[in-house]
Design a protein around this nucleic acid. Structure first.
Lengths: 121, 121
DNA sequence: TTTAGTGTACTATTATATTAATACACTACA
DNA sequence: TGTAGTGTATTAATATAATAGTACACTAAA
């Protein structure tokens, strides 16, 4: 898998994992892939994958059963959604609006592009 | 100055410099602050600031006059704008639309928030 | 000519990121 | 009871990021 060079790989993996929870590909109380399996899937070293797991565990999005694996916590979805919403409103949205102005876009254009986006997905 | 921990400081500084050009705070053929001055202003080591200058010089956004300093190139504005637009359409916008769907926002809400943004700036 | 301010080029040190290779206790299951 | 699959811990090596300090050639101006 190709990763962005401007951010640490384990942070990008953590984000991918959180998105799986948001998309309900990983549901509450379900077991998620093992550290080793995810490392293979992401084509990274197991130690790098571990760092992503540790972040999610620390935020109580996943938890561990000894000798078995990691599981999605009961409140995982709401925890992730709350954090992403906060980040979206406080970080991404102001940055997005700033760029619209700086780069001479209009909300009408954005609206048209959004409709195209919804058609093509 | 406070920097994000998820990206290298010199990359964040390069972005800040490009934004000054987009905002026409730094105009074509004008001299920009010296490496040492910018390092002081950003509260970083001069060597870190140098890396940001090198990026912009390599993209021909700024150029150097020996013993004098760095200057904004004639085409700086169009170079930066072109790159930012490309990044906006290909990277930020798809990410933004994805988040709208995942986080249950609507374009109507975004539009309202955008109007508020324009009032408060 | 002297001086202060340029960019540039070093060396060194510290911290983090990433990969690599083991090792070990625990659990489920044949 | 083995055995394979869990997470976890450890040591090592390499690369990058960031800071620190020093030195040097160039330019403008006193």
């Amino acid at each position: 898998m190709k990763f962005s060079e401007s951010q640490a790989i384990y942070l990008q993996i953590a984000k991918i994992m959180e998105e799986k929870i948001l998309r309900k590909e990983w549901k509450a109380e379900e077991r998620i892939p093992s550290v080793r399996d995810l490392a293979v899937a992401m084509e990274v070293n197991p130690n790098t994958a571990v760092r992503a797991f540790e972040i999610l565990q620390q935020k109580e999005i996943i938890y561990n059963k000894r000798g078995i694996g990691y599981f999605v916590s009961e409140n995982a979805y709401s925890i992730v959604k709350k954090e992403w919403k906060k980040n979206f409103k406080e970080q991404e949205l102001p940055e997005f609006f700033k760029n619209i102005v700086l780069l001479d876009f209009s909300m009408e254009e954005i609206d048209i592009l959004y409709k195209q986006f919804n058609v093509n997905k």
